[in-house]
Simulated assay, not measured.
Amino acid sequence: MEAFSVGEDSAVPDEQAFQATVALEGDGTCIARARHLAAHFLTRVQAEHGLPVSQRAMDLTQLVVSELVTNALKYAPGPVLLDLRITGEAVEVAVWDGDPVLPVARAADAARVGQHGLEIVMAVAQGFEAQREPVGKRITARIALLDDPDGTIPGQRTL
């Protein structure tokens, strides 16, 4: 079962914050669905609230969502909770799962096949945090909304 909503977070007094949360079961389509929900969330925030989101930020957010949800489904029992939140000029991607063991990034090894997800997330995110929760853990990555080397912002008008 999934719940998806975008709404204003009244807990942030001087800036608008928008959030979407979805519970994902471990079926074969949930990783693709999580990526789609992330893209939909950023598109809605951009279209409905006028926040600029670069194409690079859109792509990186989907990549981070994919890697974090994949890891949670692979290593933790039960459902996964995906939380997307706009804070300031960034999107925070948080994934909760029921396993309390915190992930550890491995040393870089070009010969290793697979298990590079955490390295990828840490390389593209402006911030990364792993914390234990009363049940399980929460992994959070922060991605700048305007993180685009070319300066292109989808929907931006040129003068």
Score class of each variant (00 low, 15 high):
Ala23Tyr: 05
Leu24Ala: 03
Glu25Trp: 06
Glu25Leu: 11
Gly26His: 09
Gly26Trp: 10
Gly28Lys: 14
Gly28Pro: 10
Cys30Gln: 07
Ile31Asp: 00
Ile31Tyr: 00
Ile31Asn: 01
Ala32Lys: 11
Ala32Asn: 13
Arg33Trp: 00
Ala34Ser: 05
His36Met: 10
Ala38Glu: 06
Ala38Pro: 03
Ala38Arg: 01
Ala39Trp: 01
Phe41Gln: 03
Phe41Lys: 04
Phe41Met: 07
Leu42Gln: 10
Thr43Leu: 05
Thr43Val: 04
Thr43Met: 01
Thr43Ser: 09
Arg44Asn: 09
Arg44Pro: 00
Arg44Gln: 13
Val45His: 05
Val45Cys: 04
Gln46Lys: 08
Ala47Arg: 14
Gly50Glu: 10
Gly50Trp: 12
Leu51Thr: 09
Pro52Gln: 12
Pro52Phe: 13
Pro52Asn: 12
Gln55Asn: 13
Arg56Phe: 00
Arg56Ser: 10
Ala57Phe: 06
Ala57His: 03
Met58Asn: 09
Met58Ala: 11
Asp59Phe: 06
Leu60Tyr: 00
Leu60Gln: 02
Leu60Thr: 03
Thr61Ser: 15
Thr61Asn: 08
Gln62Thr: 13
Val64Ser: 02
Val64Gln: 06
Val65Tyr: 08
Val65Met: 10
Ser66Asp: 10
Ser66Arg: 11
Ser66Tyr: 04
Glu67Ser: 00
Leu68Lys: 00
Leu68Cys: 00
Val69Glu: 14
Val69His: 08
Asn71Cys: 07
Lys74Cys: 07
Tyr75Asp: 00
Ala76Met: 10
Pro77Ser: 14
Gly78Thr: 04
Pro79Asn: 11
Pro79Ala: 12
Val80Ser: 08
Val80Gly: 09
Leu81Ser: 02
Leu82Arg: 13
Asp83Val: 15
Asp83Leu: 15
Asp83Ile: 14
Asp83Tyr: 13
Asp83Met: 15
Leu84Gly: 08
Arg85His: 04
Thr87Asn: 13
Gly88Tyr: 15
Gly88Ile: 14
Ala90Cys: 12
Val91Tyr: 11
Val91Asn: 08
Glu92Lys: 12
Ala94Gly: 02
Val95Pro: 04
Val95Ser: 09
Trp96Leu: 07
Trp96Thr: 07
Trp96Phe: 08
Asp97Phe: 07
Gly98Ile: 09
Asp99Ile: 03
Asp99Thr: 10
Pro100Phe: 10
Pro100Asn: 11
Val101Leu: 10
Leu102Lys: 05
Pro103Glu: 01
Pro103Ala: 04
Val104Cys: 09
Ala105Cys: 10
Ala105Pro: 09
Arg106Pro: 07
Ala107Gly: 11
Ala107Leu: 15
Ala107Thr: 15
Ala110Val: 12
Ala110Tyr: 12
Ala111Pro: 02
Ala111Gln: 14
Val113Lys: 14
Gln115His: 13
Gln115Cys: 07
His116Cys: 01
Leu118Lys: 07
Leu118Ile: 13
Glu119Tyr: 01
Glu119Leu: 13
Glu119Ala: 14
Ile120Gly: 06
Ile120Glu: 05
Val121Glu: 02
Val121Gln: 02
Val121Lys: 03
Ala123Val: 05
Ala123Cys: 03
Val124Gln: 11
Val124Trp: 10
Val124Cys: 11
Ala125Pro: 01
Ala125Cys: 06
Gln126Ile: 03
Gly127Ala: 05
Gly127Tyr: 00
Phe128Lys: 01
Glu129Leu: 04
Glu129Val: 03
Ala130Pro: 03
Ala130Asn: 07
Ala130Met: 02
Gln131Ala: 14
